[in-house]
Design a protein around this nucleic acid. Structure first.
Lengths: 257, 257
DNA sequence: GTCTATACACCGATAGAC
DNA sequence: GTCTATCGGTGTATAGAC
């Protein structure tokens, strides 16, 4: 589905042409979305902007849903790429998490800021992922999106709990989960997702994710406009505070190896 | 704009008829939205469901935008009403906020839960308010919505900071705001909105709001489905934890009166 | 692989009769 | 106040020629 996969067998001319066309169509669709929002996406409009007719598109995407699915998948991946890249290129944090006040920016905050930045830069694509599902679109059994969500939460889990051991997380100061919920989570966590995260860490992760996501959503949809030009600063402060609160709830471990 | 305002001069028969018709139209539009989402709202569909023709609707609403505006306003008010009602009928909290662990549910948590409950019960109307603005709809200079937002944030501000004085809030343990942001906030806060809330309390309120809203948005749009049937519990835990964190950041005041 | 032509649905809005 | 009729636009999708 992706345009560029330069591995293995070399592509034939036909295949390369086809991939290039698909890439071009996706790009046109994305700029279409960027201009008028996801709801405005239509094959006709895309075709128009490419100087083609609708029928040409039907050759590459058998229906509108296929195009939408490809766009959603790509958006998930682009967002995750952006966050991953920001994390990868961030400087190492100097002290341990117990250190009272790092002057440097924690990588979790950097990750959150790149999440926000992507959403601000691509509000419509962000909406495509996290907003209301498109009318007349039915997702294909959640295949690709589930995988993308897992990738994202993996990144954030790593950064949010960086420097803490499983034992520490298991002892985090968190309201007690009901037995049923605890069982449900442990069942869900064990097999594949989020490598063996202790169940008390789950509400912490969800809360943090919720806060980050909520602030971004409010900003993107214009509900925090009263902050004016200081949205980025406000977000930064919130994320710092959130991280502090999270770390306060995790007990100090052994004297660091 | 509201159907029922039984104060002052009695309405004439014509006016009562008119109000009833408007009410009926709004109800039909809302159930239309509830079925197919806000994007599916159309005068024709509403007319169909009422057994009328489109032109009859144009008598009550001169354009689609007017109908949408009325729906948005009503949604804001209904949501605020629901939260206000939940807060009003909640039992008083027993201890002071400094009291270590109230066994009762703090009213802030009750307010948050009623916010979530309304969103879960009316996901499409919630979307209408907080989701992407409708295509081809331009809001009328933000008149009513601004008022509604103020009302909402007023309620939550009261509950979040219940029991704390302005002096305590002013001394809250919060990362320092930049001078520019601080100035901006104080300018904004002084005149009308949020009665003289000290500026350090603003990021706390926004963070809390963001977390609450984010969790609701994620749930309503199906991004926390892995929690299964325990969404309400997870939300409750998060809100409790959030409130704890907030209270920890506000210093204890004088020995209570 | 791209085109024209077409079928059939939806929408907002207006004109004018009753 | 509600109707029929209509205009001009949107869209998805298909058939068949080249």
């Amino acid at each position: 589905m992706n345009g560029d996969a330069p591995a293995g067998a070399p592509l034939t001319l036909r295949e390369r042409r086809w991939a290039a066309a698909v890439k071009e169509i996706l790009a046109a669709a994305e700029s279409q979305i960027a201009e008028n929002g996801p709801a405005a996406l239509s094959l006709r409009a895309v075709a128009r902007s490419l100087g083609m007719t609708v029928q040409a598109l039907y050759h590459y995407f058998p229906s509108r849903d296929e195009l939408v699915t490809a766009l959603i998948t790509k958006a998930y991946e682009d967002l995750a790429d952006a966050v991953q890249h920001a994390v990868d290129t961030a400087p190492e944090e100097p002290g341990h998490p117990e250190g009272s006040e790092d002057s440097d920016v924690p990588r979790m905050v950097i990750a959150a800021e790149s999440y926000r930045q992507w959403a601000v830069d691509h509000p419509e694509r962000f909406q495509l992922i996290y907003g209301a599902p498109l009318r007349h679109y039915s997702a294909p059994t959640e295949g690709s999106s589930t995988r993308a969500v897992r990738r994202m939460s993996g990144i954030f889990m790593n950064e949010l709990f960086r420097g803490f051991t499983s034992e520490q997380l298991a002892a985090a100061d968190t309201p007690a989960l009901s037995p049923a919920l605890r069982r449900h989570l442990e069942e869900f966590l064990s097999p594949d997702a989020l490598g063996g995260m202790p169940s008390p860490a789950v509400p912490i992760l969800i809360s943090a994710w919720g806060q980050m996501h909520g602030l971004v959503v409010l900003e993107v949809f214009g509900h925090t406009s009263f902050v004016g030009a200081h949205q980025a600063e406000m977000f930064h402060l919130s994320m710092r505070t959130m991280l502090q609160d999270v770390r306060r709830r995790i007990p100090a471990g052994e004297p660091a190896k």
